[in-house]
């Protein structure tokens, strides 16, 4: 039993946006795997819901002729993981989503919810960041497209306004073609857990020289982050132990993990340094697949 106060099942996108605009306390309900947990805990901020599960247009997964891949915000993790387009072109997205919860959760949880929830531990965040994903957002005044970098503004906070809905994720061919990418979720359990640290890397190589590295972390700062200093240092270097050790040193300037009862800062930093090296290597191993 949930202490729900208001429930509106939206008939289309405009109806959903209108309902959100009309009720300032209303929240979007997608898969509900974050929302219903909060409601069960008695969080009144989630008692007024606009259910968008009727909006089938937001479940789309497709690729246009230019090679841009679109994933609807309402597509469930399982559908994305199993989709042919994703398997062949965005394996790191599938790999990241496969670390979320367990099968039951992935069958209902959406990637839109994972990102809009704003959690600093969101398992799709690293992959979206290293692919420079774009987000298409619908509001009362129309649509806007923003980069994922900058979407998160703090723990549990994003740039989304109360009456906006995330529609699609866009992946441009220039971002995903010719890279090797990997994600590692470091957690205390191998399923049903939140990340202690999440690390994603996308690598472009020429021979054994790194032409570009994109590196992202979750739970390493107040929001999921990219690592500009480390990325810059990597460009043009040979991929070897020495480079990896160097990157492990630099990454400390790109992150600010904190101490909580869940883990000490020292420990998180050690894992971050270790993952920079292991995930970059793993990304190199994934080269040439797509």
């Amino acid at each position: 039993m949930f202490a729900m106060e208001n429930y509106h099942r939206a008939t289309d996108l405009n109806d959903a946006v209108r309902a959100l605009a009309a009720h300032p306390e209303a929240r979007v309900l997608a898969g509900g795997t974050d929302v219903l947990i909060r409601l069960r805990e008695g969080d009144g901020a989630f008692a007024h819901l606009v259910d968008i599960n009727g909006l089938d247009e937001l479940r789309q997964i497709d690729m246009d002729t230019s090679g841009t891949i679109r994933i609807g915000a309402l597509a469930t993790c399982t559908r994305i993981i199993e989709h042919e387009i994703i398997r062949s072109h965005l394996p790191v997205i599938a790999a990241s989503l496969a670390t979320i919860g367990g099968p039951q959760i992935r069958n209902i949880a959406t990637m839109g919810g994972n990102i809009c929830n704003g959690a600093v531990s969101a398992d799709s965040a690293c992959a979206l960041l290293i692919l420079d994903t774009e987000l298409v957002i619908q509001g009362p005044a129309g649509e806007r497209t923003v980069p994922i970098l900058g979407f998160h503004t703090g723990p549990g906070r994003t740039i989304l306004r109360r009456d906006e809905i995330l529609k699609y994720f866009l992946f441009r061919p220039g971002q995903y073609r010719g890279i090797g990418a990997a994600y590692c979720k470091y957690a205390m359990r191998s399923a049903m857990d939140i990340a202690t640290i999440g690390c994603g890397a996308a690598l472009r190589m020429e021979g054994d020289i790194i032409t570009s590295l994109k590196l992202a972390f979750t739970v390493a700062a107040p929001t999921p982050v990219r690592c500009p200093r480390t990325e810059e240092a990597a460009a043009g270097r040979r991929l070897d132990e020495e480079t990896l050790a160097l990157l492990a040193g630099i990454v400390e300037d790109d992150v600010q993990p904190r101490t909580s009862w869940r883990a000490e800062r020292d420990f998180r930093m050690h894992i971050i340094r270790t993952l920079v090296q292991r995930v970059t290597r793993e990304a190199a191993n994934q080269q040439g697949g797509n």
Binding site: G102, M188, R189, S190, A191, M192, D193, I194, W261, R262
Partner: peptide, 22 residues
């Protein structure tokens, strides 16, 4: 927490009982 007796992880997210995959 030894200071105030607060229970930090009294739920199955934070109390890490292993899953079948562990």
């Amino acid at each position: 927490d030894p200071a105030g007796g607060r229970i930090c992880n009294g739920n199955l997210l934070d109390y890490k009982v292993p899953t079948c995959t562990d």
